[in-house]
Design a protein around this nucleic acid. Structure first.
Lengths: 219, 219
DNA sequence: TGACGTGTCAAACAAATGTTTGAATCTTGT
DNA sequence: ACAAGATTCAAACATTTGTTTGACACGTCA
């Protein structure tokens, strides 16, 4: 009986805290940290105005919590090498990496709007970015660097590896970050799952074609 | 005499207005529209708090004015095809286009911080973006599409033209937009003029290599 | 010179917003 | 069932911020 009550209290205890996290993720993603009001967050969470300060201390601590939470969720939802085995070819790995990255960026479901959050974090970095890079982004970058090095036939620390890896990532990020302009230029809204697959195909093909030529020519 | 006095008054009239524009461009670029305070802008402009409302109506009208002003200045400072003649090869034009775009984006001098302003406009589009796209960005995009079409040997309205053009632009935008992460990943700050040249060389080489392969293979 | 329009200034205003407070309510352990 | 702690709530508080106001200074023109 004590166990049951413990579970219940734990659930209750975290109930508003959890709803605050989700509501805050939504609001922060929509309008950014500064433009969000604790009143709106609490309203969506069905909580009292004082709830944020009670559960998280202040608005900023809530934000860093949201950021870490969203990133971890996105990474577990779309692992970088989803769907390929360890002994797949570097080309197959690249395609998987690109597709997973795109899906991660463009998934703006309420529980995983980490793409928008990251975009804002780029423009206005907070203290949370440092640990975010070390904990989540650097491991991903290392994976990509290994793949690119294999494709290029370069040592891992060659500068061309980083340049080409950035060229790959940049194409993935672009359609999200410059979405407003892309949409106005070609009259197309945010891509759906099918369009995302096409995009992944193009980016992979474009990048592979570039890197194949890279390894032949000397610099 | 009347002419002189008119000039003088006109100069006086525009003096604070001009200083407001420049100060506002700085502040908006640094902290964004919402985070800027009219007090800070007026302080830097050496003007009274009421100056913005008097000269521009309100803070938002000042912002759209700043945006248009900054973009026009950047475009006249770095024309898209600076340094190449009309009968240059498409490859030469691409290199010039990339370099000019990079310089435009990374020039954050007080008079030309349009890169930061645009980055923020991407994340949080305002009503000013529509006219900005039609007036400044679409003409540039058309130029690039023509160049890419020439390189690919495709008709101008082929979808591959747009995809490849976006792939080119994305690489240019990336180092600016994701600057905070890039800096933390490879421990390098914002690129200087020399680094910008290297970047332009890489992006051009990478993209050309990709597109050369594109035109050979069928899709 | 004196009325008039323009620009500037300090002060005040009104609204928004993060945070605090103290009482009320619920949950838990005994 | 009851006391203690945890949580929620409405109200108030303090600060920031965009805007307005009315007086004042300056140059212009009749």
């Amino acid at each position: 009986m004590s166990q049951k009550s413990e579970i219940k209290t734990a659930a209750n205890q975290d109930a508003t805290r959890q709803q605050l996290l989700e509501a805050a993720a939504e609001v922060f993603a929509e309008v950014g940290f500064r433009n969000s009001t604790v009143r709106e967050i609490c309203r969506r969470a069905g909580a009292n105005i004082a709830a944020i300060n009670y559960h998280f201390g202040d608005k900023e601590k809530l934000y860093t919590e949201v950021l870490r939470h969203a990133h971890a969720r996105a990474l577990e939802k779309y692992p970088p090498l989803q769907g390929v085995t360890a002994n797949a070819t570097p080309e197959q790995k690249l395609r998987a990496f690109v597709h997973a990255l795109l899906k991660r960026i463009f998934d703006d479901s309420p529980t995983a709007c980490h793409g928008k959050l990251m975009s804002r974090e780029m423009i206005e970095p907070t203290a949370a970015l440092d640990s975010l890079v070390e904990e989540f982004i650097r491991p991903m970058a290392s994976q990509l660097w290994q793949i690119v090095a294999d494709i290029l036939g370069c040592p891992l620390n060659d500068e061309r590896v980083r340049l080409c890896a950035f060229s790959v990532v940049s194409q993935c990020v672009f359609y999200h970050h410059c979405g407003p302009v892309v949409a106005r230029l070609v009259g197309r809204p945010a891509p759906d799952a099918a369009a995302l697959e096409n995009l992944a195909a193009h980016i992979t093909k474009f990048s592979l074609a570039a890197m194949k030529n890279f390894s032949n020519k000397k610099r």
